[in-house]
Design a protein around this nucleic acid. Structure first.
Lengths: 366, 366
DNA sequence: CTGTTAGCGCTTTCAG
DNA sequence: CTGAAAGCGCTAACAG
């Protein structure tokens, strides 16, 4: 048999066998079959066995579409992320899938491609599919979350992770971005840096806004006045990092450190700064954020903030399962651990590895 | 209003509005509402307008579960991959989502975690959900594809990509792994390497098996006899690469090149070999496979075979859409372009960049 | 323990 | 152009 069911040959297809087919064959009622199939009580072991084996031989496959409609419950969870091809988000989704499949849920996934517009469409699709919960990391330009309102109104739990919007209605899962950036900046200052560039993203996004605040706070506390010309807003791609590094290397009044809000940008900077013949961290110290695997591949190794996508995903999914099953909310904000990992890209002094096994903020904060 | 719909407060939830609610409100029939909503003909512009605006204000959201059941067509495509947190697969899935969402389909995604057992469960779940098509990259230990049989039998198109199983029933999308490995090995030989290690994965997997064959073929054609002790079967992680590199550096009768079947392993080797004080490519040339972004981050830059996950995903999805819409099969095998990119990790001689803009094998092969 | 019955929300003939 | 009626496949009262 070959792979060629054209519009003309459709009639050749066996159509899926239903519980009625099984029922007829065994001369029982459909409800008996239904009961047998779902494995609870209220049915004799004998008939169950007959039904199960008939189902097997007839090639029966539950129609969950029908079942979902009838039970008003889809066993499907939606996930909306800005993009699927990012190490962090891929890790997060892996964590989510892992957790959710354990709980017997399926995953409907879509990407907003960093656009609120598509995000709104995605939400609508999720609503149509009657997902029983939604996990979301917001698009680059999302600046309010009214488009999630309707879902919430009919009781569908929505949980935000990583790129979130602080609010009083939905749980939110992040790290303490402020604190992490504060720690990182303080580390740079401790290494003797004074003119520290901060390259970051859209300030509408909590993650970037908070990191910027942490950066400013650290400067302030160390008596360094904030220089707006050292704050760079960028899309934080590797390429933009490259470009920025080039410009910086040519700069007469060159900064002595770069703190980028992600590792890609930092790696780009590193590349072009090395190419320009400057030494790292001697001339310019460089730090990133996320602790992407690339941190240990570039030379010198890149100082960064560890923030595991997999755990974020796992945590978000676990929280969702909890909310679905218990219907209650135990915390509206979960702050996950982070860890500053100082590597050679910032260690001008002979300092010790700063990575701490006792990270700053651990889990649950109400 | 707060986020706390417990089992006790469920009655507070507005339940979703149906077409009947709209119908009642406007004193028309449900079928009229249905027609209006789906935007075809057979309805007066005036009533359509009324219905549309009522739907809007009432917060109507199509119940696609019901609609799918009725139409016997789910508009949902399934994706099963060995894991979600791999650069290649994340790229592939991004490509798939991109293509499929353009066509108006939704994505049900699951990972087999490299286990046939879970893969089988995943297939069952996909079948239950009545996906209208399935895209699959196989698990590490999958050695037959009978578990996809039933889906095919009721006419659901299944398309394999990357890790595939050659067969006469389902389309398959890959690159010419044999050829790519052949080219890469030949390149190493041209650079003067003679004792070339090939580190690869499970030989049940087409991708690894074919690469091994390409490697052997190149050796043979250049009069180098195949030495089984130079063929390493591994899980190809970075860590295993590190380990292997260490062992190799200590080896008295050291090989002069490593061709790893992925970039992670190659990068690991590079790391520990550099640490051991050997020069790359002087003492040992190293090449990987996939052209992961890391290739341009490590030093020296890693020679690899470009094979873009995004295009593979896009191609697979496009093919699926085609099959779904036209029901026919135009080719059972699609071979995508690959490109050998020689970088400094293998260029002992002063050869030119080997990257060709006219790659070897382009698209469609029947 | 098993069967009957009545829908879940939507689409689709078929009549008007 | 609109309405009535039937039913997709399954589940859950409710009877027996």
């Amino acid at each position: 048999m070959d792979y060629e069911f054209g519009p003309e040959t459709m009639h050749l297809l066996k159509k899926p066998v239903t519980i009625y087919d099984i029922a007829k064959k065994l001369a029982v009622s459909a409800s008996t079959v239904s009961r047998a199939l779902k494995g609870g009580n209220g049915i004799s072991p004998a008939t169950r066995k007959r039904i199960l084996s008939a189902a097997e031989t007839m090639g029966y496959s539950t129609n969950s579409v029908a079942s979902n409609l009838r039970r008003q419950n889809s066993k499907t969870v939606g996930v909306i992320v800005p993009k699927l091809n990012s190490v962090f988000l891929a890790e997060a989704i892996a964590g989510i899938e892992n957790e959710l499949s354990k709980a017997g849920y399926n995953l409907l996934i879509s990407q907003s491609l960093e656009s609120v517009k598509k995000e709104k469409e995605n939400v609508k699709a999720m609503a149509s599919h009657r997902v029983i919960g939604l996990l979301v990391s917001l698009a680059y330009d999302t600046d309010d979350i009214n488009h999630f309102r309707q879902l919430m109104d009919n009781g569908t739990p929505v949980i935000f992770f990583d790129r979130v919007f602080e609010n009083d209605h939905f749980p939110v899962i992040t790290i303490n971005n402020f604190r992490a950036a504060y720690e990182l900046t303080s580390h740079l200052i401790a290494e003797g840096c004074r003119r520290i560039v901060h390259a970051t993203g859209n300030q509408l996004q909590n993650v970037y806004k908070e990191r910027t605040m942490g950066y400013k706070q650290a400067l302030m506390e160390h008596g360094i006045s904030f220089d707006p010309s050292l704050l760079i807003i960028s899309n934080l791609t590797y390429e933009e990092g490259l470009e920025f590094g080039e410009k910086l290397a040519a700069d007469g009044k060159r900064p002595d450190a770069i703190f980028a809000a992600n590792d890609q940008f930092a790696a780009g900077c590193m590349q072009s700064i090395k190419k320009a013949g400057l030494s790292i961290p001697g001339d310019v110290a460089i730090a990133g954020f996320n602790d992407d695997p690339l941190c240990c591949l570039v030379e010198p190794n890149l100082t960064s903030v560890e923030y595991k996508g997999f755990s974020v995903g796992t945590e978000a999914a676990a929280k969702l399962v909890d909310v679905i099953k218990n219907g209650s909310r135990s915390a509206y904000k979960i702050v996950l651990k982070h860890r500053l990992i100082a590597r050679s890209s910032t260690q001008k002094m002979d300092t010790l590895l700063l990575g701490r096994d006792e990270p700053f903020s651990s889990t649950l904060v109400q």
